[in-house]
Design a protein around this nucleic acid. Structure first.
Lengths: 298, 298
DNA sequence: ACTACTTACGTATGTCGTAAAGATT
DNA sequence: AATCTTTACGACATACGTAAGTAGT
């Protein structure tokens, strides 16, 4: 990046950008950018980290007041994480006009806060009473719409696929596909299991459930789909959430667990077995022999 | 409040304040303040709610960069919640010059973020992997320094004081003293027990542990002191936390549970009995007959 | 009539653009 | 030499203060 480039993007001249940076650096008493080539200093990178949430909140505040002044006309804009999309689609039965948009877990609260979306349906793992991440961006209504046991997707010929149910700890050393956008990131799996392991193998960066399951079937790894507790559904203070106080209970959660099998018409996905998983606590991990885990993976 | 008063506080004239408000209202397209008398409108109150965290982050960013530019000289400034204060005092043994300041759980992260404190020791209840509230204000080092079973303080002559240990559900209908600054707020107790109850009785707004226990002894209610898991100790990125990577393990937690009994020299507080409490899960509450709880309370 | 907020206007400060100078590759 | 940033200076916009105007109490 360069001052000239930034100026072009902002509609300013290079001089103005230079003056801004100089003024800010003088104000803070720290050099923020190294020039020629232009790159953030340590202090500059730090400041940048602060800037993003602040700007996000400013945008959220402006959007909130604008919505307060003039309620938005048009269809209800619903966003959902990949595994909650089916539940969101089910909402369309009640709501005639409805816009659906699939995004990241992290992006969803942002979009709702900035009034880019009216309602968000997100899945994920959460303790009974902890707040959803991103919920503190702006005052928003949050409610839990379902709870479901966790499931894992395995290749059909996986040694552990023969069992009806598994413990997460058994899979600590399996070959996982890290698909942070679709299922839980590996880091969270480690936290949930209270154990090390869950080595980083193939990463699936997309948000496509079908694609991920295809990768599992081919044998790139054993991947777990979310479950345990239904994702909260953050909504705007006025709007969607109020109009749908009681959506189908468990809607989001059913879709989440079903996305692997039932989401495509309840016929088993080719080459994929879906098994329920009990989330291991640290104690459970310590007392359970992890020998069998090593046999796993295609 | 009045425009004139605000102007006096800001060092401006009434006119300037009037112009600012008018410009902001024109920008947002909403009336923010009702005049004569001056009071926030609904939109104004909403905007105010957004303003506080934004201003806090701005202050935190400025403080962080200032600290980065010129590390603060002088003694280590440590803050602590009332029940973690004893552990903080124990730090003084290692650190020759040390400033100690007792505050609220909510205030502590703010003070650390704005570089008003170098290190914060706070107690409280938390699930194994959830982040501490206030920790997202600024990038700060957080670590858990102890874990301890929960305890409840009862009057000596309380019917339940005869038992060596109690379940939180048993106390759902007891007469509690709500001391949100010292122990867990009643709302959190409800969440932890997964049950209704915990009726609001006397409120103890202070931060004085001894005073609270005196109130318990006199019989104003049955009050629980914190426990379960040690409070995390948020520290600045550079400074205290790095210099004390391994504080006495369990320091904060020991002090927290001990604040009722051991904190005053390990002699039992006059008229107060301290009993350990198991935190009830929703399931435990449903299956446990709550009849006995009704007998409790002095 | 008194008090408090609003509006009008003059001044000061700040911001941006143009243009020239300086620095780096 | 070419490219990019900094500095200098003039034009414009913004912000504040003074003072007059207006609206509640």
């Amino acid at each position: 990046m360069s001052f000239s480039g930034a100026a072009a993007e902002l509609g300013y001249t290079q001089s103005a950008v230079s003056q801004h940076i100089a003024a800010l650096e003088a104000d803070l008493g720290v050099r923020l950018l190294e020039r020629r080539p232009v790159a953030p200093t340590v202090a500059g990178a730090r400041l940048l980290a602060y800037a993003e949430p602040i700007l996000l909140r400013l945008a959220a505040a402006r959007a909130d007041l604008a919505r307060l002044a003039a309620p938005r006309p048009g269809p209800l804009r619903v966003g959902a994480t990949p595994l909650a999309a089916a539940a969101a689609a089910r909402l369309a039965a009640d709501e005639p006009a409805l816009t659906l948009c699939v995004t990241t877990r992290a992006d969803l609260p942002r979009r709702v806060a900035t009034d880019d979306l009216d309602l968000g349906l997100l899945d994920g793992y959460a303790a009974p009473n902890d707040p959803l991440p991103g919920t503190d961006l702006a005052p928003m209504d949050v409610s839990v719409h379902g709870e479901q046991p966790a499931v894992v997707a395995l290749p059909r010929d996986h040694p552990l696929a023969a069992r009806p149910a598994l413990a997460l700890a058994d899979l600590a050393l399996a070959r996982w596909i890290d698909a942070p956008q679709v299922a839980a990131p590996l880091a969270q799996l480690r936290a949930l299991a209270g154990a090390e392991g869950f080595p980083a193998g193939v990463t699936y960066p997309g948000t496509d459930v079908a694609g991920l399951l295809a990768a599992v079937a081919v044998g790139h790894g054993a991947r777990r789909a979310p479950g345990r507790r239904g994702g909260g559904a953050p909504g705007p203070r006025r709007g969607g959430a109020d109009r749908h106080p009681r959506g189908a209970p468990g809607g989001a959660a059913e879709a989440r667990a079903g996305a692997a099998v039932a989401g495509t018409g309840r016929r088993p996905w080719t080459g994929v077995a879906v098994r329920s998983v009990t989330l291991g606590t640290p104690a459970a991990v310590d007392h359970r022999p992890p020998a069998e885990a090593r046999t796993g993976t295609p």
